[in-house]
Design a protein around this nucleic acid. Structure first.
Lengths: 143, 143
DNA sequence: GTCCCTGCAAACGGTTTGCACCCGG
DNA sequence: CCGGGTGCAAACCGTTTGCAGGGAC
């Protein structure tokens, strides 16, 4: 579980002012195990503090993102998802329910680097698409 | 070069009515070697037929996309790009100029499939990010 | 006390939709 | 002639921005 001071320390180390909004946003992302949209975060924060605004959630997320404390992922033109998992990883997207799950990191095959000619590659991002465990069960009720 | 009848045939085979807008949209995409946004396509078509509307370009692109004649790619929440290259391939995105280039297809390493547990994988999509050839030259003017 | 952050509302860019008219089959 | 496509404008949705006031350091 994430303690208050851990979050404060993470924000401090990134040189960000510790404000209520940033703290709450960071806390929310760390406590969830699934990726969240800005809107979900806004509603959660807004429930405990009705004065909190959507714009500030966006601003906070951008600040956290620039500071490298969260990662923004955008898939298929839908609302951006925010991810507090900073370990290298890839993503799996379910075609049916749309859930986005983390999958373990693997590097690009060596041969690929050669096919890229004069380009420099800094990042390797993979997206797998298919049926998640739950949707697969539903597809085949029995046999 | 793509001949008029080839495009007509492709549309026919997909069971789509052959209308001026769909033909022009398809032609435009086939003739370009880079991916285009709906807006670019709209402006190109609008130049020769000032009555053409943005909405119809979107509708046509959606129809072509549903029919499997073009592929829609959305990257980083920016305007969608449309791609008439139907061969399997991956994408390279330049961090500096934003250009999106096709790179040769390669399959996921076998080990990856095992790490996915009960999920079924239908598609494997890779995005490489870095500096394209042009931007790399500019980065290092000399030494 | 100084900036930076916040909240609000308005603006924004990309895309979709409702509707009346039009055209391909 | 019928059904679907088209053009237009307005709606939509996620996100950003300008501004005035407030809070962190």
């Amino acid at each position: 579980m994430y303690k208050r001071e851990e979050i404060v320390r993470a924000l401090e180390q990134s040189g960000l002012r510790i404000t209520s909004q940033r703290f709450c946003t960071m806390e929310y992302l760390l406590r969830r195990d699934v990726h969240s949209t800005a809107d979900e975060i806004f509603h959660a924060i807004n429930k405990s503090d009705p004065r909190a605004s959507r714009a500030t959630v966006y601003n906070s997320l951008n600040a956290l993102s620039r500071a490298g404390l969260v990662r923004e992922i955008s898939i298929d033109g839908k609302a951006a998802l925010f991810d507090s998992n900073l370990r290298r990883h890839h993503h799996f997207v379910c075609d049916h329910c749309g859930v986005v799950e983390d999958v373990p990191w693997f590097d690009a095959p060596k041969a690929v680097r050669h096919s890229l000619g004069a380009r420099t590659v800094r990042e390797f991002e993979v997206m797998l698409r298919g049926s998640c465990e739950n949707c697969k069960k539903k597809e085949k009720p029995s046999c």
